[in-house]
Every structure is written in structure tokens, then in C-alpha cells.
């Protein structure tokens, strides 16, 4: 009994430690620093600038400055989770598809280079952020999975909302075996930017 008190004290500290979650999954998808801008074609010399890691600075247009001010500072994707599963329930330890884009014009479509290759019926989940870099309006994007071999597509899901400080998730259940690319279409009236990742999960 004389050990009970110190053990209980330690237990309470340990329980507090235990229930503080180690950050589950954070797939940094910050695109702002890496995505190149096709307008960056003119280089100017700046005497004060020195870096071994960057090309010389280029002047920004007024439009680019305005867009930079409107763009979120550090959007990133995190994964909320539903239920604890065994390690055998996930098909890929890392996201099968990772993507990012910016200034996707109205009525434009893009296809991911990565693909998710599933060998049995699975649930495919996309975690995403999206915004309009040149407007305060919500972007309107549709997301579809396209079979790389047959060209057949899942029904599109439209996301007409800005997600920056937090991500959202969309998913297709019971996707048939095959290799799928993610297709994103801008059907809104404004340019769009976004990033995210996709993965497949076994069906319980």
C-alpha cells in the first residue's frame, strides 16, 4: 500500500501524456514556395540579393502582388481520422497521389501525373485544400477519378468552397480495381489553386 500514492501520481501524469496525441498525419502540401510561375521569365539583377539556392529575383506585376496578398500563407493538408484500423487495412503507406496547382484558369482541366493503383474494390479518399488566387470568391472545382486504361470515370464531386486553414475530404466508395488518375476541372468563374493527396483504403 505504501507504493500506491507515488504510483497513482505517476499514473496520472502518464495518462495526461498518453491522451495528448502525437500529430496524426500531416502531409505538408505547401505549394506557395515551390510552384513556379509561368510569368517568371524576366530576370533582373539585384545587387543586394545573395543566395546559393535561388535564382535572381524577378519583378512582380501588380496582379501577382495582389494575388500573393490574397493567397493563404501556408495552406496544408491534414487528415482527420474515423476509426482505428490495423496496418493491413491501408493499401499504401504513403499517399498514392500527391498534387498541387495554381492559377488554373476557368474552364480548364488538369490530370495528376501520379496515380492510385488498386487491386481490389477500395474506398479512395482525397484530402484537399483549394482557393481562388485572383479573387475572394469561392473556387468551383470538380474532382473525378479516371481509369488510366479504360478512360472510364467515376461520377464527379463538386467542391464550391474555399479551404485553406483546414482541409476537407471527399471519397468514392467501392471503386473497382484499376489504375486511376485524379482529374480536376475548374467549372467556376475564377482562377483556382489547390493541393492535396489521394489514397485507397480497403473496404471492411
Amino acid at each position: 500500500m505504501k507504493f500506491l500514492k507515488p504510483i497513482l501520481s505517476i499514473l496520472s501524469v502518464a495518462v495526461v501524456f498518453c491522451i495528448t496525441p502525437i500529430n496524426s498525419v500531416v502531409y505538408a502540401a505547401n505549394m506557395t514556395s515551390e510552384t513556379s510561375n509561368s510569368n517568371f521569365s524576366v530576370s533582373v539583377q539585384n545587387d543586394n540579393f545573395k543566395s546559393d539556392y535561388f535564382y535572381a529575383p524577378v519583378p512582380l506585376t501588380e496582379e501577382e502582388k495582389a494575388a500573393a496578398l490574397r493567397a493563404p500563407v501556408n495552406p496544408f493538408v491534414t487528415v482527420p481520422s474515423k476509426s482505428l484500423k490495423s496496418s493491413s487495412d491501408i493499401l499504401f503507406a504513403e499517399p498514392a497521389i500527391y498534387y498541387e496547382f495554381t492559377f488554373l484558369g476557368k474552364d480548364r482541366s488538369i490530370t495528376s501525373i501520379d496515380s492510385v493503383n488498386i487491386t481490389e474494390k477500395s474506398n479512395v479518399y482525397v484530402s484537399l485544400v483549394q482557393w481562388s488566387p485572383s479573387s475572394s470568391a469561392h473556387p468551383k472545382l470538380t474532382y473525378t477519378l479516371k481509369n488510366a486504361n479504360t478512360g472510364r470515370e467515376t461520377d464527379p464531386i463538386t467542391v464550391e468552397k474555399t479551404y485553406t486553414s483546414e482541409n476537407t475530404g471527399i471519397s468514392w466508395g467501392n471503386v473497382l480495381p484499376g489504375k486511376y488518375h485524379l482529374v480536376i476541372k475548374n467549372i467556376g468563374n475564377h482562377e483556382a489553386a489547390g493541393n492535396g493527396f489521394a489514397n485507397a483504403y480497403k473496404i471492411n
Binding site: 496524426s24 481520422s81 484500423k85
Partner: peptide
């Protein structure tokens, strides 16, 4: 390894 929650499925 948890399956994420989707706002739309």
C-alpha cells in the same frame, strides 16, 4: 493508418 473522414462520399 486510420481511414480519413470524408465530407462527401
Amino acid at each position: 493508418l486510420k481511414e480519413p473522414v470524408a465530407a462527401v462520399t
